[in-house]
Design a protein around this nucleic acid. Structure first.
Lengths: 121, 121
DNA sequence: GCAAGCTGATTACACCTGTAATCGACAGGG
DNA sequence: CCCTGTCGATTACAGGTGTAATCAGCTTGC
């Protein structure tokens, strides 16, 4: 699966949220803060199509775009890459890292424990 | 803190492992698979210097390079970026994701549980 | 029928990255 | 003293990315 660049990812998120959409609709849903013009969004869409992570069907003179890959799959892959790169493929050090950095609230801890318990049964 | 590119990261790892080192020494320690020439490693070192994540001191006519940032800090930041991007800043979904993807072995689970228990006390 | 407005396609351009080669300066062996 | 090797610095160049503008073709309101 091709990598998706940071900006492109914002476009994917829109379409994972709701699809199919036209280019103009996507542009309308991209987070304001990006400050992108329609032209920019169209560039992103073309590149994502070229990467094979979007598909499009013609609707009259326009395209309707929709994701060609599942969000979970991509996220899993990308997480895996980070873990490989920074933690040698081991998950525990990541959790340890997060813990050490106070990124885990008590609620997080409780939730993760519940999750793990479920996993064991 | 400046981002460190994938290839550059390999150089940082060498120096996090052992520092200070000369350019040639770094080149000698970069993983074989990269197949980098000394020239390539020198480019990386210059760029990392420019990014401020390495420092160098002169030793005769050469430089001795050493990390200017701590590995844990960088890793924490980079993990945080991924989590923000893909999990909306929440850690639990990441763990859930890893669990769902069978990235967690029973040993992982046990270890994480121990970790969490320690955190609570 | 024709101008105005959308559409996707093509082109633009600067910066980052991977991957080097080249260059000018110097040090050390003969 | 000079050749050769080694240093960092500078330059190179293609591919990816952010960020668009422009263009050619169709539609639709007049």
């Amino acid at each position: 699966m091709e990598r998706i660049a940071e900006g492109e990812y914002a476009v994917m998120e829109v379409l994972w949220d709701e699809a199919p959409l036209t280019a103009a609709e996507v542009a309308g849903r991209v987070p304001e803060e990006r400050g992108w013009t329609l032209a920019t969004v169209k560039t992103m869409l073309s590149r994502l199509l070229a990467k094979g992570v979007l598909s499009h069907e013609e609707e009259g003179r326009r395209y309707l775009y929709r994701p060609a890959i599942r969000r979970e799959d991509y996220v899993a892959e990308e997480s895996g890459r980070l873990i490989d790169r920074m933690f040698g493929g081991r998950v525990t050090p990541l959790v340890a890292q997060l813990a050490a950095r106070d990124k885990l609230t008590p609620a997080d801890i409780a939730e993760i424990e519940k999750l793990l318990k479920a996993l064991k049964s």
